[in-house]
């Protein structure tokens, strides 16, 4: 599949990555070459092979419904870029 710079810009928006206009062509090129590489698998007929999300055929273990965590806000917010009154601060969120 061929990708356009527009495709890459859309994907970058989804991924919240900014690509400088001067770099978009090169990034698109490089992504294209990766996609060309992975496109090799399009040649294989996978038919109705069930997709494999996890290599072990195990099933989910369940945790008992117990409160095991205590307040660690001070430790966690000590490494926060911006916090005040126990809240993490971000530029104003508009709904």
């Amino acid at each position: 599949m061929t990708v356009t710079t527009q495709d890459i810009e859309n994907v970058a928006t989804l991924a919240r990555l900014r690509i400088a206009p001067t770099e978009i062509a090169e990034v698109t090129d490089r992504i294209s070459s990766v996609l060309q590489l992975v496109d090799q698998m399009q040649a294989v007929d996978t038919g109705d092979t069930e997709p494999m999300a996890n290599p072990l055929g195990e099933v989910q273990r369940l945790r008992a419904d117990q409160v095991t965590e205590s307040d660690q806000r001070e430790a966690f917010q000590a490494i926060a870029p911006a916090a005040q009154d126990g809240l993490y601060l971000v530029p104003r969120v508009i709904d």
Binding site: D7, I8, N10, V11, L17, V27, I31, V34, L35
Partner: peptide, 12 residues
Amino acid sequence: KRRILVGTYALS
């Protein structure tokens, strides 16, 4: 960043 872009593309 490249891998994030490729991965985002593959899931989109």
